[in-house]
């Protein structure tokens, strides 16, 4: 495959492709990857629906604490305060939502690549053109969210809630852990795009690759909105 080295760099452009739609006509005119990512997101909806349903079915069914929203006193008289820290998680939710904004700006920056800047463009117009800035920002905010989650998990364990403690522990860690794993995959994906952008430079032709990553990223954000509402806000 060495003889295809030139083509190989082109493959890196295509990034997450298996499809060859950019060479050929398709029935819908859409790239194969665009259809596949929507099918994937449809499937992911069922995954999170199953996880969230289980959480809701088991809500309030734990026999021992700590509990998410209420105080618990164990047999030895030890007091466990309500374990969810809503202000902290509100902050991390805000960070994740802002990452979606940065993702939108990253896609826009890729679409605008190569177009001349208007005369007398200010710092914001210049900043809007930097796909590296916004891809990096999205990844950074995603990583920040993961940092919050790591903090949350460790402090819960310190307060006495693990996977094994009760139904709340099992369902909470599994659901939010699954979401965290999705954010991690997203951060790796964004960093791969950033790496491609830094080495070879993304162009408007790569819009689709960024667009697919953005669809995934927004989906993961929307799932978090559901989780934050159902688990943290509704008591």
């Amino acid at each position: 495959m060495a003889s295809h080295a030139a083509a190989a760099s082109h493959g890196a452009v295509a990034g997450h492709d298996d499809g060859h739609a950019h060479h050929h006509h398709t029935t819908t005119g859409l790239d194969h990857r665009k259809i596949a990512i929507w099918a994937f997101i449809g499937s992911e909806c069922m995954l999170f629906a199953s996880l969230i349903s289980t959480y809701l079915i088991y809500k309030g069914k734990s026999l021992v604490g700590p509990f998410p929203h209420t105080e618990y006193v164990d047999a030895a008289g030890k007091v466990f305060t309500p374990i969810l820290d809503i202000p902290v998680t509100s902050a991390s939710t805000f960070v994740l939502l802002m990452s979606s904004l940065a993702m939108v700006l990253a896609l826009q920056a890729v679409q605008l690549k190569g177009q001349p800047l208007p005369a007398g463009a200010g710092w914001w117009t210049r900043a809007q053109r930097s796909s590296q800035l916004w891809l990096g920002m999205t990844a950074l905010l995603g990583a920040c969210f993961l940092g919050f989650q790591a903090y949350e998990f460790t402090s819960f364990v310190r307060e006495g809630l693990t996977l094994k403690t009760n139904l709340f522990g099992s369902t909470f860690f599994t659901l939010t852990g699954f979401h965290g794993a999705h954010v991690t995959v997203g951060v790796l994906w964004l960093m791969s795009l950033l790496w491609i952008d830094r080495t070879r430079g993304l162009t408007p032709k790569d819009e689709l690759v960024v667009d697919i990553c953005a669809l995934y990223w927004h989906f993961v954000d929307v799932v978090w909105i559901a989780i934050f509402t159902l688990i943290y806000l509704i008591q």
């Binding site: 499937s43 069922m46 995954l47 629906a49 199953s50 289980t54 094994k164 009760n166 522990g169 599994t174």
Partner: peptide, 22 residues
Amino acid sequence: AFPPITVALVFLMMDRVFGTTF
């Protein structure tokens, strides 16, 4: 249809390997 069974299997695997309470 596969995501619900995947979730059920993940729960079962965690019960068996990590001692969760699903």
